[in-house]
Simulated assay, not measured.
Amino acid sequence: MTDNNNLQALANSGVSVWLDDLSRARLTSGNLKDVMENSGVVGVTTNPSIFQAALSNGDSYAAQVAELAQAGTSVDDAVFAITTQDVRDACDVFRPIYDATGGKDGRVSIEVDPRLAHQEAETIDQAKALYAAVDRENVMIKIPATIAGLPAITAVIAEGISVNVTLIFSLERYRAVMNAYLEGLEQAREAGKDLSTIWSVASFFVSRVDTEIDKRLDAIGTDEATALKGKAAVANARLAYQAYEEVFLTARWESLAAEGANKQRPLWASTGVKNPDYSDTMYVTDLVADNTVNTMPEKTLQAVIDHGDIRGDAVTGTYADAAAVLDDIAAQGISYTEVTDLLEEEGVEKFEASWADLLGDLQAALDAAK
């Protein structure tokens, strides 16, 4: 629930607002419940960088760290225990939303160890382990959309586990993600599972596309190149929504829908605006579309509350213009495939680096608590 007109306008347009942050302090202070009850937030996403930041501010974790240290817990098992507890507790906070929406929202996401991003079998095993450890219906397991991640997505969906697919940058990979989801549903159907209980979102990353392409446009430096700055990310995401519309109108999908299957919603991720010259709400206002999720860092959420200009659907009907933007960027000699491949590689590397920092900080805390 929210009294804010901007957030209500998003909800009325079919956009679910999820918070891209979680920490023990948010849970124990009541802040997480407050943003759910008063700021229109109906879900939570986490990632390795979020947990690294949370644990670096470690006072609220001291008691659990001391307990784990006394038990001689390894650093990998300790981080597993700490993060799954935060997600379990957040799932409990959001359970009323989950119940009220029939499982669509009220979701909390936790990501597999980023070091497994290119390991299919290990990703599947850890997804199952995370699901069992959190032990809440409204958890979503995040799996990266790497080549190894695609069959893992299918396998985990086939087990009846809801999945948040992360680190999607390219339209080609997004279509492969949707195919992996449908394959998982088909396998679940063959196994006799209730398809209506399986949900998924596909996290299509936004701001990083502009950051990388703008850098290349700046290097070109012509008026034509400069005029294209700040346009690539929204265009890319709008074309992703076009792909979503196409896939979820096919006969293949309709056969699954007839048995209760749920559409895999597009989720706009990385929606914090990096360039101060741009509107700080552009990756929200310009991507309003039905049956989508926008997961926002708190700074972006507060900007939307304060001055977000929500004017309904900003996506359907824009596809020709969006394709023209990407064509114009390609005409400048910028390779779309090169950019999206780089962003995926960098995305995995950034999460691995955050995880390494998290493990280092936690190991030091465990040693100090012995």
Results as ranks from 00 to 15, higher is better:
172 E>V: 09
124 I>A: 05
292 T>Y: 08
94 F>K: 04
345 E>D: 08
232 A>I: 12
209 V>M: 15
351 F>M: 11
288 V>H: 07
61 Y>R: 00
238 R>V: 03
43 G>S: 11
255 S>P: 07
286 D>Y: 01
239 L>I: 01
309 D>S: 12
59 D>Y: 09
302 Q>M: 15
160 G>S: 08
42 V>N: 05
306 D>Q: 15
188 A>I: 04
257 A>T: 01
181 Y>K: 00
296 M>Y: 13
32 L>M: 12
88 R>T: 11
55 L>K: 00
27 L>H: 14
22 L>P: 06
6 N>K: 02
134 V>E: 07
298 E>I: 09
226 T>E: 08
246 E>L: 04
337 T>P: 01
345 E>M: 10
344 E>P: 05
5 N>I: 15
177 V>P: 02
133 A>E: 14
43 G>C: 10
250 T>A: 09
53 A>C: 00
201 V>E: 06
203 S>R: 01
164 N>V: 08
360 G>T: 08
305 I>H: 02
228 L>H: 04
120 E>T: 15
170 S>A: 10
300 T>F: 05
248 F>A: 15
263 K>F: 08
107 R>M: 15
251 A>P: 04
353 A>N: 09
208 R>S: 09
205 F>W: 07
352 E>H: 03
70 Q>C: 02
269 A>C: 07
295 T>P: 10
160 G>R: 07
279 S>T: 12
265 R>F: 14
46 T>L: 01
285 T>A: 13
138 N>H: 10
84 T>C: 05
355 W>M: 15
190 E>C: 03
293 V>T: 10
110 I>V: 15
94 F>I: 06
115 R>A: 14
123 T>F: 10
11 A>C: 09
163 V>L: 06
245 E>G: 14
49 S>I: 00
20 D>E: 04
42 V>L: 11
218 D>Q: 13
40 G>H: 00
104 K>T: 13
54 A>S: 15
178 M>Y: 13
27 L>C: 09
